[in-house]
């Protein structure tokens, strides 16, 4: 609870993206991390319930229709309830393939539905104005793509099985390969609801903010005492690359009129108060002209 109290005291960062401003409440970010996985699991459980096995029938029958249309295979959808398998594909000359909830691809739809529903809305009125429309669009398009890709996956697998490949060889490999579509969905989702990726970056910024403040405070105290600052925390404050740090820091210190002695940055006494002022800015050492 102490962590949440500390976070709520921090001045909230604002992320600007595509001419829109994104500010999220801490509550909405927590809701995303907890709500998305729980809701995804609950939606999956709902469709894994026997009363919802109409979905199995629709998927099996559509697959069989396309198998017979494209390959003239003579495949059939058979209703034979036993345990978790209610439907099976009957393939001529091969043993039947039993169908379960995982074969519908609903698990992928559930994960994205959970994420899309719980993606936080920006507190900026312009950015959140059409969020419901964008979320609905993302939800429908991602669900349709997953559904269609899943049927294509089954058509390919069952056709390979029909022509003689071992089911064990093609089942897991093609199923895993078809999951590449999730990457495409993430990209599409970012087009319509950039709030998801931005909320992850936002959380990172929010969590690292107390650490940044602590670092600045330590540097400030050291400069007040000895007119010196350690180079390691300065690198982090100035967000300089580790590889090019020694080169960058010397040109930077020359610009501001500081010197480097060993692992320390030495600030002339007359420049110490200005150093602290620049250090404590929201964007440290950013000149006004920048």
């Amino acid at each position: 609870m102490q962590i949440f109290e500390n976070l709520s005291k921090i001045k909230k960062p604002i992320i600007e993206y595509d001419e829109r401003r994104y500010i999220f409440s801490i509550r909405s970010l927590i809701l995303l991390t907890i709500g998305a996985p729980i809701s995804a699991y609950l939606i999956y459980l709902f469709f894994d319930w026997e009363a919802q096995f109409w979905l199995h029938e629709i998927v099996v029958k559509q697959t069989v229709y396309f198998l017979n249309l494209f390959f003239n295979m003579g495949a059939e959808a058979q209703f034979a309830p036993s345990g978790k398998y209610f439907w099976k594909f009957s393939i001529p000359g091969q043993s039947p393939i039993y169908f379960e909830t995982f074969c519908t691809g609903i698990q992928a739809i559930c994960i994205f539905a959970g994420i899309i529903i719980f993606t936080p809305h920006s507190q900026d009125p312009t950015a959140r104005e059409d969020i419901v429309w964008r979320k609905t669009k993302a939800l429908i398009v991602s669900s349709v793509i997953f559904y269609v890709v899943n049927i294509i996956r089954m058509i390919i697998q069952i056709n390979l099985y029909y022509i003689g490949y071992e089911w064990a060889d093609i089942h897991f490999s093609i199923s895993a390969a078809s999951s590449f579509i999730a990457a495409i969905i993430v990209l599409l989702m970012h087009k319509w609801i950039p709030e998801f990726i931005i909320s992850i970056i936002y959380t990172g910024t929010l969590v690292s903010e107390p650490l940044k403040q602590k670092r600045k405070k330590q540097v400030k105290e050291m400069v007040e005492k000895s007119n010196k600052a350690e180079l390691k925390p300065m690198r982090k404050i100035l967000k300089m690359e580790k590889k090019t740090f020694s080169r960058d820091i010397s040109s930077w210190s020359d610009d501001f009129g500081y010197t480097i002695e060993g692992d320390y940055l030495v600030i002339p006494p007359e420049k110490a108060s200005k150093f602290i002022e620049l250090l404590m800015q929201d964007k440290p050492f950013l000149k006004e002209s920048e």
């Binding site: 026997e50 009363a51 919802q52 096995f53 109409w54 029938e57 629709i58 209610f86």
Partner: peptide, 17 residues
């Protein structure tokens, strides 16, 4: 149109969902 064509015992649930 689909509901009466389904063979599943719970075919009406398609509409309810």
């Amino acid at each position: 149109l689909t509901i009466p064509l389904l063979e599943s015992e719970s075919n009406f649930n398609l509409g309810f969902v």
